[in-house]
Simulated assay, not measured.
Amino acid sequence: MQRAFLEATFLKKGETIERVEEIDGLFVFHIIKHTARRYLRVAQFKIAKKIVGQLEIPKEIRALKFTPKAKRNLDVFNIENIYEWLQAGWIVQETRYNADGMTVASVDYRMGPAYEQALQYKQQQTLEVEQEHIKQLEAKSKQLNLPIIFKQAMVDEQLPLNWSFSKRLRYKEFCLALYALYEKKGLYDFKEIGASLYDRIGGSKYFDVHREEFLGQLAFSGIDVSLYGLVSTGKIVSIHFTGDVEHPYAKYTIGAVHATTDNAVYVAPFSTTNTTLWLVENRAILTRMAVEVEFLKQTNSCVVCLDGQIRSAHRAFIEQLEQTKIKQTIIWTDTDVAGITIAKHAAEIIDGPVKWIGRDFEVYDVFQLFEQAHVGRAHEQEQQLGGVEQWMKWI
């Protein structure tokens, strides 16, 4: 076993084991490398003769964070500890020689076979726990009688490729907990989703680290969380805009930059008498357009800032406005990869006519043409702010 471990993990190309000795309860492997002219003595490895059956890695060894390629200097530890770890198989001593094959170039310690076994055992345990977790989620899903849109939102193929397995599981937990709360009490706060799953101190924070991603993924899947009882995300999300906009508890007019919150969006719908909706990526564009009061009045425009991404609150706000008097939507973003993605997702919210603003003041009414025209042509909105005369042409 030790020989196979050494050959598979540490030997370099062209290196072979010349001979093996047994010294003080350890195997000593002598490593050579064959060149065209001679055999070179290149290294020596000391490995435990008998591997411990213990599967809990000692705290001091675990803190060293070994990987198959990692090398560690253990000078801070006393020789008794090092020898004990060597004999147990937690570590391997690697001695490398200089080109003369005699003088020592370095002495390092590396992950031992016992360490590898413990990692494999832990991975197997994790896999078993995850499999059990999957079964529990599937059972809960059947109990809840989830709508088709939720079932589709939880399919792995619909989730971001860069999400880990554990993150996908947590997202599915989130979806089920959210819908369970909706069925149970109708209205709830974001913090209640985690608290409903884990009846302990800190349970309410279980989903906090993924709050924006998970809510955004639900919105991307076509799920309006406000329709499923979420009245607050547990964190204030601001939405900046200018326009003639009304809410049951507030009224806004053209002439200043206004701000509302996600809570207001989820409590009751917003409406507008404006007919042209501008969706801009950056706040600088919003503030520039907001000072052109006569232009906004003449064109009956409302401008909403996405602040670099489309959160669920922004999506809900835009959907509410779009369902009133809006006749056309103009989307103005950067033309880098992120900006084009935002432009695409923004258009998916809109039912009516859409235009995209590209480089050199070009306007597009087909997204594919807008996307193709900007491959390798990243451009910030601020590089072509233009003015009233130019904006009028786009309308």
Rank of each mutant, 00 (worst) to 15 (best):
Q323K: 14
Y249F: 06
F77I: 05
Y266A: 07
A63V: 00
F150C: 00
H345V: 02
K49L: 05
G202Q: 03
Q381P: 07
F27T: 01
F207G: 04
K172L: 03
P248Q: 12
F207C: 04
L197Y: 11
E130V: 08
L385N: 10
S106V: 00
K71W: 08
L161A: 15
A8K: 14
F10W: 10
E348H: 09
T276S: 10
Q123W: 13
D365Q: 11
V354W: 07
T35M: 08
K65P: 04
L230E: 02
Y249S: 13
R37H: 07
V293K: 14
E116P: 04
V76E: 14
R200C: 08
K33W: 11
Q152Y: 12
A250I: 02
L55S: 05
T272L: 09
W85S: 03
A139V: 12
K122C: 02
K71P: 05
T253S: 15
N282C: 04
G216D: 05
L161E: 14
I395V: 15
E18V: 11
T273H: 15
N300K: 15
E362Q: 11
G243E: 00
Y97V: 00
W332S: 00
W90F: 06
Y252P: 01
V28C: 08
T9D: 06
T95N: 07
Y198F: 15
V267E: 06
L127R: 15
N162L: 13
K12N: 14
S312Q: 10
L64C: 09
V52T: 13
K393T: 14
S106D: 09
Q298N: 15
E94G: 05
K344S: 06
L146T: 01
R377Y: 11
I254C: 09
N162F: 14
T275Q: 12
I285M: 11
Y182I: 01
T126S: 10
Q158C: 11
Y39I: 03
D307F: 06
Q93C: 13
W332E: 00
W356R: 01
